[in-house]
């Protein structure tokens, strides 16, 4: 365990000068090194491009596409794919192509909100616990445990089940955060526990730096590697959880739409109207797949030893 942690710590980049832990110039080269390593991971690079395209499709697409995602009486009911409606239309008259863009947008919004918010909260929580150790650590981590023992999807379902109608994308995202920050906290605490024993932290402490300064300026930046990897993977988890929630009826509620909601609505249409079933499903798979590969690439890039093996 300790071996791995120190490896992660190494990969996070042990600054030579404790007084100037993350200097601008040094930081850039650090990123440059990681970026160079990342670029060598072909699957991760392809994934990054794909994900960028999907994101553009989701956020920029609706600006240029002729139809909105809502019902429009000019749209024919239940039409198959055509140039005008590449993914066909729904019964009530939605353009499925526009819905897919909107759905991807909402799913990504949920996923990124969950990832960012959980990471901020979880990383801080874990770093504080790891830094102080002892009783503080024990209590803080037991609190995190409480949130870990309830599976994400059932936790959200039991709350969402009752705020139905009010379950907008940010409500879903916030409730998901509530039950996913603890995972990050655990990872970060583990890293911080080993980091804090290192010389540069000792030096900072000896120089009289305040705890908050040590945590936010020294510990967290140096734990960036594992944090980024965990956060990346959380995005994929969030997309899938949202989809699963939609399937059992507790995800984002109409008139809004998400990818999960679209697949759920079309699950009986897989063979009768496949154009309703496959695009949103494939998009979910693509988002998760690319994110997992990017996570993999990041892990390799932040972990020099494995990259060496690869070359």
């Amino acid at each position: 365990m300790s071996e791995m942690q120190s490896r992660i710590a190494m990969s996070g980049g042990g600054p030579e000068n404790p007084e100037q832990p993350v200097a601008k110039g040094g930081d850039l080269t650090q990123i440059q090194i990681i970026w160079r390593r990342f670029r060598r991971h072909r699957a991760a690079m392809i994934s990054l491009v794909l994900l960028a395209l999907i994101t553009a499709f989701a956020f920029l697409g609706p600006l240029v596409w002729q139809w909105g995602h809502t019902v429009n009486s000019d749209i024919p009911s239940n039409a198959g794919p055509s140039w005008d409606h590449p993914f066909g239309t729904t019964k009530q008259g939605n353009d499925v192509f526009a819905q897919t863009m909107r759905g991807a947008q909402q799913s990504l919004k949920v996923a990124f909100t969950v990832a960012v918010l959980s990471t901020v909260v979880g990383a801080t929580w874990g770093a504080v616990a790891g830094y102080y150790r002892g009783r503080v650590d024990a209590i803080m981590m037991r609190i995190a445990d409480i949130f870990l023992i309830i599976p994400l999807i059932v936790a959200v379902a039991s709350i969402n089940g009752n705020v139905r109608g009010g379950a907008t994308w940010y409500a879903v995202a916030l409730i998901m955060c509530l039950f996913s920050w603890a995972t990050i906290a655990r990872v970060v605490r583990g890293v911080v526990l080993s980091l804090r024993e290192q010389e540069f932290i000792e030096a900072a402490r000896a120089a009289g730096a305040k705890a908050s300064r040590i945590i936010f300026r020294h510990l967290l930046p140096n734990a960036a590697g594992p944090i980024i990897v965990a956060a990346t993977l959380l995005i994929a988890v969030a997309v899938l959880t949202e989809a699963g929630l939609s399937f059992i009826g507790f995800g984002i509620q109409p008139p809004d739409i998400s990818l999960g909601k679209m697949v759920e609505g079309a699950r009986t249409a897989a063979f009768t109207r496949p154009w309703l079933f496959y695009p949103p499903g494939v998009l979910i798979v693509l988002i998760c797949l690319t994110i997992n590969f990017i996570g993999d690439g990041l892990r390799d890039a932040l972990d020099p030893r494995q990259t060496m093996v690869r070359r």
Binding site: T70, V71, S73, K91, Q92, R164, G165, G249, Q253, P254, P255
Partner: peptide, 16 residues
């Protein structure tokens, strides 16, 4: 009622 597919459609049409 949230989740009622037909009423969702009806309400959107009435709105229009």
């Amino acid at each position: 009622t949230a989740g009622h597919v037909a009423r969702e459609i009806i309400s959107e049409l009435i709105q229009a």
